[in-house]
Every structure is written in C-alpha cells, then in structure tokens.
Simulated assay, not measured.
Amino acid sequence: LCRSTWGHCSIYNKRHPPGFSYRELYMRLDEGSLTFNANPHWGIEYFLSRGILDDSAKEIAKFIFCTRTLNWKKLRLYLDRRRDVLDDLVTLHNFSNQFLPNALREFFRHIHAPEERGEYLETLITKFSHRFCACNPVLTRDLGLSPDAVYVLCYSLILLSIDLASPHVKNKMSKREFIRNTRRAAQNISEDFVGHLYDNIYLVGHVAV
C-alpha cells in the first residue's frame, strides 16, 4: 500500500530494524505528505529526520517523481528553491520517441508550469529542451533540432495553447500564421513539422494544463 502511493522511498531499500511496521510507515508517509502540503521544506525535513529519505538531491527527486499526493503549488515553490533537486527530477524523464508537444505535456504533469512567465519558466523550458534532445539524438539530428530550437518551439507551443484555449482571444491564430511566426525564430525547422505541432495543439489541447 505504501508503494502504490509513494513509489520510491530510501527506506524501502534498507534493512528494517526489529519491530518495523509498514502500517506505521504508511502513517508517517501520510503525515509527511500533509506537512509538505503545508510547508514543503518542513515536509522534506520530516522525511529526512525519520530516515524515510536519504539527504541527497537524487533521492528526493525520485521520491517526488513517484509520488502523487504532493500539492503541485507547494512542489513548485520547493523546486524553485532546490534547483539541484529539479536537475535530478528532469533527468528521470524519458522522452524517447515522443512527439514534442506530448513530451512537453508529460513534463508539465510532473513539474507544473508557473502561472506567469518569468525566470523559473525559462529555466524549466531550458532544462526540458536539453533533456528532450538528449533522449532523441537521431530525431533531433534528422529534424535539425537543437536545444535552442526546441526552446523556441516550446514557447511557441505555450503561446499557441493560450491563444487557442482562451475565451478572451477572439481572432485565433491560424495554422499559416503559426508556421510563419515560428519559422521566423527557428528558420531551419521544416514547415511540415511546424504544421504538425499546430495540429497537435488544435486537436489535443494545451501543453501546460
């Protein structure tokens, strides 16, 4: 039951002391999650102080990646301050053979995008772009993609998502306009590929929901 809710904890891989109880561990994991959702730094400290997590960025990142009970707003605050944990969390994603908008959606399901543009969003997109290219070396070579090009495409996808989804935007961006605007910033990307990006957003929806 613990593993179904908290998929990774350092304590799972340790020799358990006499009297160890999974029921007690479950209660502590639940209490720690509630603490995290009130104050993320106190929550992580709770897990560390009770030996549930080892004090390393990689272990904390694995815990976050495999846990679905953490409040995403509190998690965003924590990751904004703990960039070392964010780095390890990004490397846990495998975007191999994924279409770019789908990979971006998966990324933002684990690491929620901030509500406003700023340095943190730029950091997330930069890290995603490098990870996407690292996971798809053949694809990026064949399409002429670089981390900088993926970065530009990600911003284009986010802006297109907002444009198509917002009820306040009456004149929606057309496919032709999207292709023209995107290829101005990323000239070596084929028109067909950019067109497929538009179709995905139009049919599937926002990349950062």
Rank of each mutant, 00 (worst) to 15 (best):
G43Y: 03
V194W: 00
A38D: 12
L160V: 01
V207I: 08
Y151C: 14
K58Y: 11
W42A: 11
E106T: 10
F132D: 05
P40M: 08
V207C: 11
A113R: 13
A165W: 01
L104R: 14
L145R: 03
S33R: 01
L34Y: 13
S190P: 00
V204S: 05
F36I: 08
A185E: 05
P17C: 10
D88Q: 09
N37G: 04
V204Q: 07
L164A: 00
N97H: 13
R83M: 07
S10C: 02
P101C: 07
T140P: 01
I64D: 09
Y12N: 01
H110A: 12
R15S: 11
K73F: 15
Y202Q: 14
S49M: 02
C133L: 07
I158P: 05
F132E: 06
V169A: 00
F128S: 01
D199V: 06
H196L: 10
P40L: 07
E115V: 15
T35V: 08
H206S: 15
V204N: 05
L197H: 02
C9G: 04
R117S: 13
R28C: 05
T123F: 06
F107G: 00
E115W: 14
L139G: 07
H8M: 10
H130G: 15
T69H: 15
K170F: 04
R176C: 03
